[in-house]
Amino acid sequence: MTETYETETYEFFSEARSEAVVNARMGADVSTRLAQVMASLVKHLHAFAKDVELTQEEWGLAVDFLTRTGQMSDGNRQEFILLSDVLGLSMLVDAINHRRPSGATENTVLGPFHVAGAPHYPMGSNISLDGKGESCLFIGQVRDTDGSPIAGVQIDVWCDNADGYYDVQQPGIQPQWNNRGIFVTGPDGHYEFRGIRPVAYPIPDDGPVGQMLAALHRHPNRPAHMHFLVSAPGFETIVTHTFVAGDQWLNSDAVFGVKTSLIASIETGTDTAWRSHFDFVMTRKTA
């Protein structure tokens, strides 16, 4: 289908009025939200270029960087999400979209290693299939903001293995679904499963994002954590981690995912090497 456009008279481009000239080209029938987003993008992008007086060479480097970032992305790796993560944008978007009342469990980034369809296990099962790592019992309760336990909560968990890799990073080396599982709470809201004490690991740094971190003298490391995706009908889904207290990278997580409320103590247990207790507080969905 060929669209026709009315001939309009526009102001010519100038450095001083670049933002206004570009934004004036949007058509009258553009959706309100798209117009708002694009106008703000142009405004801040042009302001950035003027603020740093971006050189032609720097502009070329940026175009090359973004091109290589796209080329690095495929079905198993998303370099643009990694870029968003290390710039703190992923955490900012998450924070804007998941404002919760005091006491409710906070969100953090989903990360690139969640896989749908993990096995369902009965409470207390062991999700570590490769026999590596220090055994840890993860235990707690899921409640609403009034303190009542919630039944029927699906708790999807995953973490790296003792070598710092997720199973999808090592197909053929790790068993499929290693350190992954789904559990459903009963009437008491209790959850319990065995895994390993998570270990810290570096994000993939062999691409453009890793080169950018190196140029900024930033490390690529994430503190040790267990991922949780907690969902139940009528409640807001919680996408979060519990972080291992005392980890050396807590204060400098490469993707800015740590929040004080998500740091969980890991203590010596009675019938297992380690024990981590963490309760989740869910908020009800509003109309």
Rank of each mutant, 00 (worst) to 15 (best):
T4L: 14
G88S: 07
M26N: 09
S90G: 15
F228L: 09
A104W: 02
A287L: 08
S252W: 03
D144M: 05
A224R: 05
F48Y: 15
T260V: 05
P208S: 13
L66F: 03
D94Y: 08
D271K: 10
G234D: 07
L87N: 08
P122I: 06
T67R: 00
Q78D: 15
L229W: 06
N251G: 08
P204L: 09
C159K: 09
G117T: 09
T286E: 10
I196E: 06
L216Y: 04
D51A: 14
H114D: 11
D188T: 14
V209R: 00
A62H: 01
A16N: 12
D205T: 05
G147L: 00
M72N: 14
F280H: 05
V209Y: 00
S261K: 07
L34G: 06
W59I: 09
L229H: 08
H217V: 07
L229K: 10
T105D: 01
D167C: 11
G195P: 04
S135W: 04
G124N: 06
Y10L: 15
T55A: 08
M72G: 11
L89V: 15
I203F: 03
H277W: 05
F48Q: 12
L82E: 15
V168H: 10
A264W: 05
R99V: 14
E106A: 15
S73D: 06
H44T: 12
S90W: 07
V258W: 03
K259I: 02
L137E: 14
T9K: 14
G189N: 01
A264S: 11
V115K: 13
G246N: 03
V157C: 07
P202Q: 06
K43M: 03
L216G: 01
Q56V: 15
S125C: 02
G210K: 02
L34F: 10
M38V: 14
